[in-house]
Amino acid sequence: MNWLIEFFGSAEYWTGDDAIPLRLLQHLEYSFLAFAIAALVAIPLGLLIGHTGRGAVIVVVSANAARALPTLGLLVLVVLLIGVGTLWPVLIPLIALAIPPILVNTYEGIRGADPDLRDAAYGMGLRGSQVLFRALLPVALPLILLGLRLSAITVVATATVAAYVGLGGLGRYIIDGLATKNYAEVFGGAVLVVLLALAVQTLFTLLSRVIVSPGVRQVR
């Protein structure tokens, strides 16, 4: 508790480079950038693979790789290889880790749709893309949103770790605090990261309430 008062009460964390609002904005900016790029890649790819059934191996491999690869190792290796300085070397592993959850769940959502639904849709004369977008996508939406949520959470967490290789954002408090044995700063930063993760979680829960059809929500 004392640490929290020490951290949030200190003027040091409200002005200048280390100001909490600034760090939060940085964190949001990097996270959103990586997340958006990952979604732009993974959703179309997942829809395509799920609908055509071709390339399922990519999905399986990416899911396993994302789970097994150590985040920190990947970050330091990529940044060392490409070079420190700009944002991209850090964004690349962030994006790479954000893709699999979306890809896997989009694929599973389309693939796992009721075969009778697919059959009925084609049987009524919907064309391939209409079957995908009008019948399968709405039914897969809960899973796609789950994938997006898991991905967003991964990005927030990985962006925190990425402070170690020089990325700004809330992870800075933890990494800098550890380096200087300023545990109030570590603790305060960790609390901020937890709050951010919870906010992301809540955002996606609300989002799925709004955009998933009640007819589909009940089924699952």
Binding site: D116, L117, G125, P138, V139
Partner: peptide, 15 residues
């Protein structure tokens, strides 16, 4: 132009 009815109906659950 052809009506089609299947065993499990295959209704669109989201509509």
């Amino acid at each position: 132009g052809i009506g089609y009815v299947i065993q499990q109906a295959g209704l669109f659950p989201h509509r």
